[in-house]
Design a protein around this nucleic acid. Structure first.
Length: 304
DNA sequence: GGAAGTCAAGTCTCG
DNA sequence: CGAGACTTGACTTCC
């Protein structure tokens, strides 16, 4: 099992998400931000390696405004050497990188302009991973979008759009159950019609389980990952105490983490993204706990 | 240097 | 019907 966290290292105080406002986004400013983001990405990956964390989610602002017309830079070429070096480092150490575009990336919107912008954002994310020469196991995670008062039409629109996507985008796309609208069963329905793998998010499942028995859902979800996709990916986080349903806690609850890991392990190998607000601090706390408390587990072997 | 306000984008929920 | 939440917070302005 590989472990990862999103976008920001609190231990290093570095982030791959340096950005700026639209009105200050000139070429020189963008160049400086990209350079800083890539330097931070490299430093974070080296730091992760030292801790044995072999997954990382790259911030969508790593190339600020990449899918917006204001960014006219030929960033693949301008930063080609840095990108290639980062990719070589990641591949050398068996790292798995990913993107997770935000709530504005909606592939099933009724408005075609919104869909075009979503496709552009996904294409950019794929292009970044391509620039690193990462294989198709490095994924772009998205949600299923809105419901628009007609769930059947909405998810059918999602399927239709995905099946028309360029292969360079489609081969990296994976879908995740969310905490309000789309359940694991919905994601499987879409997966059956698109061949997209499904990311199972435990906190979203608890907030919005939907139909189906958990073990059966997990078995089917893990089976959506083909050989080229790499091991199934899961998202884990604990519910924030006192927060509203689906709100990420600062740290992971070790017992809850262990219970989910044991359950997932029944269905085969997998990689785990910890979505905690304390980022790598939370992962460090968890690693210390697990290596202390369950020293005989397969998790521990990853760190020795 | 710290605090408060602002930010490209979409959708749903609540008052 | 407008504000707030969501979430990858980070920048910008103001004091």
């Amino acid at each position: 099992m590989r472990l990862g966290y999103p976008c920001v290292s609190l231990l290093l105080d570095r982030t791959t998400n340096h950005d700026c406002t639209l009105r200050t986004a000139g070429p020189e400013r963008l160049r400086a931000l990209i350079a800083q983001n890539l330097a931070d990405l490299r430093a974070i990956l080296e730091h992760n390696l030292a801790h044995g964390w072999l997954m990382f989610r790259i911030g969508s602002s790593v190339i600020p405004f990449a899918s917006h017309p204001v960014n006219t830079l030929d960033w693949q070429n301008e930063f080609g050497a840095e990108l290639a070096a980062i990719g070589a480092f990641a591949r050398q150490h068996g790292m798995r990188l990913s993107f997770h575009p935000g709530q504005y990336t909606v592939l099933n919107a009724p408005d075609p302009a919104i869909v075009e912008r979503a496709k552009a954002e996904i294409a950019y994310s794929a292009a970044f991973l391509d620039a690193l020469s990462m294989d198709a196991s490095c994924k772009i995670v998205i949600h299923l979008g809105g419901a628009y008062g007609d769930r059947d039409a909405a998810r059918a629109r999602f399927v239709d759009t995905v099946n028309r996507l360029d292969e360079s985008s489609r081969r990296r796309l994976v879908i995740e159950n969310d905490e309000r609208l789309w359940t694991p069963a919905d994601a499987l329905w879409v997966s059956e019609r698109t061949a997209l793998p499904v990311v199972f998010d435990s906190l979203h499942y608890q907030a919005n389980p939907g139909p189906g028995e958990l073990d059966e859902l997990l078995a089917r979800i893990f089976a959506t990952w083909g050989p080229a996709d790499g091991p199934p990916k899961v998202h884990f986080s604990s519910q924030a105490a006192g927060g509203r349903s689906g709100h990420h806690a600062d740290y992971a609850d070790p017992a809850e983490f262990q219970a989910w890991v044991e359950r997932w392990s029944r269905f085969g190998d997998f990689d785990l993204m910890l979505e905690a607000k304390a980022k790598d601090r939370a992962l460090q706390a968890l690693s210390e706990f697990t290596s202390r408390e369950i020293s005989a587990s397969s998790l521990h072997k990853e760190y020795v």
